[in-house]
Amino acid sequence: MSEHVDIDKQVRIYFLVFGALMVGTLATVGAYYLEVSVPVALTIGLFIASVKASLVACFFMHLIDEKKIIYWTLALTVAFFIALMALPLLTSVADQVGEFAEVEAHEPH
């Protein structure tokens, strides 16, 4: 990202991204005042946050046009990040399976 960049075009993009991020922030706060149900709010909130994060990563951090080795490193990190995120999920699934088994055991036949 250091050679042959049309810097004026880049700067225009940066301002557009900045505008989009501000709009995204207002949209998240606006969605909060809609007072929708928790699952819907979670979906909307995390969706907007992911879009904003992608904008930052792609344009401010230049990931839209990066070298192969960095993509590889990040792909590896994403794989392990998913394993890490599976951790609470696995625990709660295990809890539910456990409760289910307990209920079954106590049910009179």
């Binding site: 928790v38 709010a41 995390l46 946050a49 930052v56």
Partner: peptide, 16 residues
């Protein structure tokens, strides 16, 4: 990156 983390922290703690 620090900004990006905050983009998630803000809705997760304040709004959701």
């Amino acid at each position: 990156f620090v900004d990006l983390v905050w983009i998630f922290l803000f809705p997760v703690f304040y709004l959701l």
